[in-house]
Amino acid sequence: MAQAQARPAAHATPTRDPFGAKPIVSERRRALRSFTRNRTAVVGVVLILAIVLIAVFAPVVAPYDPLAQSVRDRLQPPSAAHPLGLDDKGRDILSRVIYGARIALQVGIFSVVLGGAAGTAIGIVAGYVGGKVESALMRLTDVLLAFPDLITGLLVLAVLGPGLWKMIVAIALTIAPRFARIAYGPTLTIAKKEYVEAARSIGVRDGRILTRHILPNIAGDLLVFASLWTASAIRLEASLSFIGLGVPLPTPTWGQMIREGVVHLTVVPLYSLGPGIALLITVLAFNLVGDGFRDALDPKSRT
């Protein structure tokens, strides 16, 4: 008896359909539940939290100063004092890997926020306004989309020069047209829906229609896309740093460390491989979360 009473309490929030046994669950709650039950997605969230904490508390977590050089001890293989060894200037590799998370996360998050906001704005305005604005914006988007992300990033960085914010801008510019595409399609369909027409007929301003009626309807797609592109942005930053462009020395970045370590692969393998593992785990974590979001929000994957 006690058990039978305890059960509905667990479902207390969803109201029951008066004509059927199925509980009515709000879409958001259903998606959230499906996400938290997805083991790989939860692993992704835990990993991201851990990386963020490590990045924020880098001065506490890192055993040494990432910039402290000791040329006499350069290129030391791993030891108890230096678990990943020392780099070509005698700096502690582990500490540099830990500090490298800061650049990776900053670039990943800010470039997606910047590029995502700009791209989404372009996409929904083009889809909602239509006409010449639409064709001009989407033409430009298609031209920018034609190039692989790395090549666009490389070209923009070549023109802008090195620097953290320039790197963020370069990656944001490669991301923006992709968000524009994602936002554009659904906006076209939603803009023709009756409720949008109704809103317009009672005199709701365009800006409000865009933010109140259109944006919330594509928010799910954007969320999936944003997490997957954070993964790609982090990978792009590392790739551009690996090429030797981007955040200037001596700030530790994973891509730059991997590059420096390649020539010393035989002496201190972890010089390259250590930051690489950190990079791989970070990119993987964001991809896991993005996949989890997609599965949770996809109506087809409902069971």
């Binding site: 990978r235 590392a238 891509g255 996949d291």
Partner: peptide
């Protein structure tokens, strides 16, 4: 697949180089 999608190309290159060449 997921690991492959997350692998930066240059890093996989270095790993292959390390094991198969070095």
């Amino acid at each position: 697949s997921l690991v492959g999608l997350s692998f930066p190309a240059f890093y996989l290159g270095i790993l292959l180089m390390f094991f198969l060449a070095v």
